[in-house]
Design a protein around this nucleic acid. Structure first.
Length: 581
RNA sequence: UGCCAGAUGGUGUAACGGUAGCACAAACGACUCUGACUCGUUUUGUCUAGGUUCGAAUCCUAGUCUGGCAGCCA
């Protein structure tokens, strides 16, 4: 069953407008986009926006989209990240854009695109190292690149600053022959890390610092996770990215706003090399920011490394893996990522928007179940024998059917569904009051049993045996309905109740350290009493414990030991009402 | 006080010289065997100042504010 909203409007934004115009003009033979993560960390919800944009454009304009590892820095990248990124991307687009995803054959370095399958893998920028190298030689031969011997510190100093022009490197005027020879020796491994670089010869006085003879290659005697030991010089982002786009035949290279100033360099490189035409162009949009979270890989890494969360897939993390583990579906994440829109405005989106998308999705698909998080015993004093009740599996899906639940003399109800001194608007159980037990009977609280400390430990109630749900006299109305489970039949489950990781909407407001505003209550673990049908809970299934929240089975679950993650609570009007008092 | 980008309700986003709309949030109400869902109603907006025009969120000028840019990271 596809849970994509039936009437999802086709998104429209300034980038799609440009693509549409190019399609109308027939500028490119086909639309080819790409999602180019660096495999140095896990994907987060910000990447989800980019994935949905790039794959969305491809599917809407009859194009294709490459997954490409932007792996030009061997010291930071690992196969572990390649694998997780690939898995997350395929999960996110599943059932939506699988058909536009393109890979290449394992071992192929010519960017021949194929559909994913046996013997294929994502594209890698590192597959193009030889071509990139050859292009660099061409640049040198054209007098447009040179080998520079400045140290890193000197390079910085010569570059100047945004408001002060730089000055030329003393090595800027080396002869072409000398540059060719030196670059060859760099490649041959004759120099130590950092000793020399290859730089483009552009303009040391440009107001755009990225045009002040930017570095193209640096020396790194390090093995590469994909290219192996073949190289000891590695290209930098600006040089590798535009050419990788060109090599793969990308038409629209979409990235985030901070690359705006790099566009001039992107264009310079492609205009000064004999690349196929029409060449790709870069377009920038604003990255996603969400309230009550931090978004950069660096900060997420910090949370993981310092043990503030259990890992990259901690359900409190807004990594794609964390969201997955929490129980968010790809449909919900997509609906959100597409819904926030694409602009150049630096925005801060409220998490409420994400939460809404998750609830909307889960409300449609979740199986309803009865579960009590914080149990309080109820004894039905007048129940002659156990009774079987029929419960609806999913009110928004008739085909989900019903199931039987046992109603017995001893039950568990939610502790917070009883109040001894209840305000007038409290519609649940109170001494002498009546409430309906969902799918079962109306009960009346006759007696409150307390322990020596004065804490309520048991309620003794009588059921209106005539009021059974579905029965002839079920029509009698009481104001409240609460959930329950049979004490005899209920099974235990560990339930992890997650809340937002930060107490402040903007954890880094005024430059404060986000670690000072971590929510100490972002995880609470309880042992819940849940109905026995949940013993068969499946990882792919989603559940709503009625009146409480949506849950998904955690990977820590084992046969006989259930673990559920709370994906998101139901909206709770009573919580708001209770706060007013 | 260098260069680039941006500014529409609380938040996000439409309107492409012609009625400022949608979503989330908020408030109120209806319904309810989930205080959920659903439905209805309501509040709140074009950064400022000039100009062009019959008419400006949109075009022009000036200003204000915000973000980005000085890794041998991407």
């Amino acid at each position: 069953m596809s849970n994509e909203p039936a009437a999802t409007p086709t998104p429209s934004d300034f980038i799609r407008d440009i693509v549409a115009q190019h399609v109308a003009d027939g500028k490119y033979a086909g639309i080819v986009t790409r999602f180019p993560p660096e495999p140095n960390g896990y994907l987060h919800i910000g990447h989800a926006k980019s994935i949905c944009l790039n794959f969305g454009i491809a599917r809407e304009f009859g194009g294709v989209c490459h997954l490409r590892m932007d792996d030009t820095n061997p010291t930071k990248e690992e196969v572990e990240y390649v694998d997780s990124i690939t898995d997350d991307v395929r999960w996110l687009i599943s059932g939506w854009a699988d058909h536009v995803l393109r890979y290449k054959r394992v071992g192929d370095t010519t960017a021949q695109r194929v559909e994913p399958g046996e013997g294929t893998e994502p594209f890698y920028a590192s597959d193009y190292f030889q071509q990139l190298h050859d292009y660099a030689v061409a640049l040198i031969k054209a007098g447009k690149a040179y080998v520079c011997d400045l140290t890193p510190a000197q390079t910085d100093e010569y570059r100047g600053s945004p408001d002060k022009p730089g000055r030329p490197s003393p090595f800027r005027e080396r002869s072409i022959e000398e540059n060719i020879a030196l670059f060859a020796r760099m490649k041959a491994g004759e120099f130590p890390d950092g000793a020399r670089t290859l730089r483009a010869r552009i303009d040391m006085t440009s107001p755009n610092v990225w045009l002040r003879d930017p570095l193209l290659y640096r020396i790194r005697h390090a093995a590469h996770h994909h290219a192996g030991d073949a190289w000891c010089i590695y290209p930098l982002y600006d040089y590798a990215h535009c050419l990788s786009d060109s090599i793969e035949g990308i038409s629209h290279s979409v990235c985030t706003l901070e690359f705006d100033v790099h566009r001039a360099l992107y264009d310079w490189i492609l205009e000064n090399l004999p690349v196929p035409q029409p060449r790709p162009h870069q377009y920038e949009f604003a990255r996603l920011n969400l309230t009550y979270t931090v978004m950069s890989k660096r900060k997420l890494m910090q949370l993981v490394k310092e043990g503030l969360v259990s890992g990259w897939d901690d359900p409190r993390m807004f990594t794609i893996r964390g969201l997955r583990r929490r129980g968010v579906t790809p449909e919900a994440l997509r609906a959100f990522a597409i819904g926030v829109g694409v602009t150049k405005f630096n925005s801060l989106t409220e998490v409420a928007v994400l939460e809404h998308a998750i609830r909307e999705d889960l409300n449609q698909r979740a199986l309803r179940r009865l579960g009590v998080l914080r149990p309080l015993k109820v004894v039905i004093t007048n129940l002659p024998a156990p009774v079987t009740c029929q419960a609806t599996n999913n009110p928004s899906d008739e085909t989900a059917g019903t199931r039987d639940v046992a109603f017995t003399r001893e039950l568990w109800i939610e502790r917070e569904d009883f109040m001894e001194d209840a305000p007038p608007k409290f519609f649940r159980l109170k001494p002498g009051g009546e409430v309906r037990l969902k799918y079962a009977f109306i009960i009346k609280c006759d007696e409150v049993v307390k322990d020596a400390a004065g804490e309520v430990v048991e309620l003794r109630c009588t059921a209106d045996l005539d009021s059974k749900s579905g029965g002839p006299n079920a029509g009698r109305k009481v104001k409240g309905t609460i959930h329950w489970v049979s004490a005899e039949h209920a099974i235990d489950a560990e339930v992890r109740l997650y809340d937002r990781l930060f107490t402040e909407a903007d954890p880094e407001e005024d430059g404060r350290d986000f670690k000072t505003v971590i929510n100490p209550h972002s995880l609470e673990v309880v042992t819940a009493k849940v109905e026995p049908s949940l013993a068969d809970a499946k990882p792919a299934e989603r559940y709503q414990f009625e009146r409480l929240a949506y849950f998904a089975l955690d990977k820590d679950s084992q046969p006989g030991r259930l673990v559920f993650n709370r994906t998101i609570t139901l909206k709770d009007a009573w919580a708001k009402e209770a706060k007013k008092v």
